[in-house]
Amino acid sequence: MLVHLRRSFTMALICLVIFGFAYAFAGTGVAQLLFKFQANGSITANGSTLIGQNWTSPKFFHGRPDDFGPYAANAATNTAGGDNPLVANGFHGQSGATNLGPHSKVLLANTKKLVAYWHSMGVNPTPDLVTTSGSGYDPDISPQDALVQIPMVAKATGLSAATLTKLINSQTHGAQFGFLGASYIDVLQLNEALAKLT
């Protein structure tokens, strides 16, 4: 009995040291050595390419909205609203979805407001542009979501629709290995490339 207890205790202690400390530090060490940029959050001069940002100017392509509500200023939290990932989930710095069911009146009202917002910007929105993502800060849009924003961006920047279509095509990442996930465009990288053209 005592022997069993001692062995169990020793085993637990060894596991704690190996998996709790050695594995964690080795993992961090290897990541920092081989994938320093990615391990630190893919942060560039203009922010992380993996975190959606708040785009309000018609000179840029917009990302997907966050779940804090449609594109309206929010006086209570002193934030610009819209697709601002700072207030994803209604809390600063926290990821999260709206969790609204498909037959929710709130979701219907929010979506209607978002559709009206996009129409006021001269854009005929796709579903991605009027729905929030799972994380609340989806950094990507689909190629179709970018194409429908061409009228807005062309008007504000003076670039031709053909130039913008070419830009979108060059920024499109296909599904990985052709079948894993879906094709997408990183909004930050797309806008960085756009800024070089204007």
Binding site: P102, L108, T111, T126, P127, T131, S133, D138, A182, Y184
Partner: peptide
């Protein structure tokens, strides 16, 4: 289609996008 999105007048063939990430899509 998400019923609420369809009722708001947005029609598509990309499936229910509410709460989903673009890079995965509905099937994944």
């Amino acid at each position: 289609n998400n019923p609420a999105v369809a009722a708001a007048g947005v029609h598509s063939t990309v499936g229910n996008t509410e709460g989903k990430e673009v890079r995965f899509g509905d099937t994944s």
